[in-house]
Simulated scan of single mutants.
Amino acid sequence: MTKRKTPFSFQIRIIHRYLGFFLAGIMFVYALSGIIMVYRNTDFLKTEVITEKKLAPNLSELDLAPIFKKGAKVIKQEGAVLYLRNGNYNQTTGVATIKKMQLPFVLDKMEKLHKANTSSPLYFLNIFFGVALLFFVFSAFWMYAPKMPVFKKGMYFAVGGVLLTIILLFI
């Protein structure tokens, strides 16, 4: 009895299917964090967190920049108190009140996962996920034989997706 060889396209379908099931959770996290990141320049879902820090007295606006970050521009000064966009600083006492808008803990962690770079151990997960998504892209073209109507229709959708992406990139 001769053993029949499984077609390559069938093997790709199996890998595609089980890799899809395996990555369903991480795809959910990336999708949700990607949607939330669209609103990162707004206060959507964020709450105000106020912290007080004891700093050295008589710091200049330049010295305050690393502490207040983007809100380090002095708006006004009343006596020894400098009022900044996201807090205030008392030049006499050195006490700084910093206001920061933060996402809830879980959403903040999801956003950090989405933005991980080589200085974070999470970047291995990002690379794995990116490679897996590339596999999904290319394996989709081996799911069906090129002679099948569903493959031809799928090619129209693929071209449409590429064109839509190119158009959106230049808007």
Rank of each mutant, 00 (worst) to 15 (best):
F21L: 14
F141K: 07
Y18V: 08
K115H: 11
F157G: 14
F141V: 09
G20W: 01
K152L: 00
I15P: 07
M143Q: 09
Y39G: 02
V29A: 06
N86F: 01
T42L: 04
D43I: 09
L23K: 09
K5P: 05
L168P: 09
I171W: 09
L59W: 04
I75S: 10
T118G: 15
P104S: 00
F128T: 10
K152I: 07
A72H: 15
R17K: 15
S119P: 01
G130S: 12
G94M: 03
H16Y: 02
F138H: 02
V38W: 04
M1I: 11
T165W: 06
L82V: 07
N126Q: 11
T47A: 04
E78D: 14
N126F: 00
L55G: 08
F135M: 05
G154A: 02
E61G: 06
I26S: 08
G20S: 09
I127K: 00
A140Y: 05
Q11P: 06
F157V: 15
E61Q: 13
I98E: 05
S60W: 06
H16L: 01
D108W: 02
P7D: 05
A96Q: 04
P121C: 01
F135Q: 10
P104C: 01
Y18M: 07
H16K: 05
S119Q: 13
I14K: 13
R85M: 13
Y156E: 09
A31D: 02
Y18G: 10
I35T: 14
T165E: 09
G20T: 05
K115Q: 13
F124P: 05
S9T: 07
K153A: 14
V137F: 05
E61R: 03
F129G: 12
N126E: 08
H114S: 06
G71F: 02
N86C: 05
K112I: 08
L32M: 12
P104H: 00
K69F: 03
V106H: 00
K99D: 14
E61L: 08
F28R: 07
M37A: 12
P7M: 00
I12V: 13
D108P: 02
I50L: 06
I26E: 06
F124N: 08
L113M: 11
Y39T: 14
T93W: 00
Q91T: 14
V49A: 00
L55V: 06
K73M: 12
F8Q: 09
N90A: 08
T93M: 00
D108V: 10
V81A: 00
K3D: 10
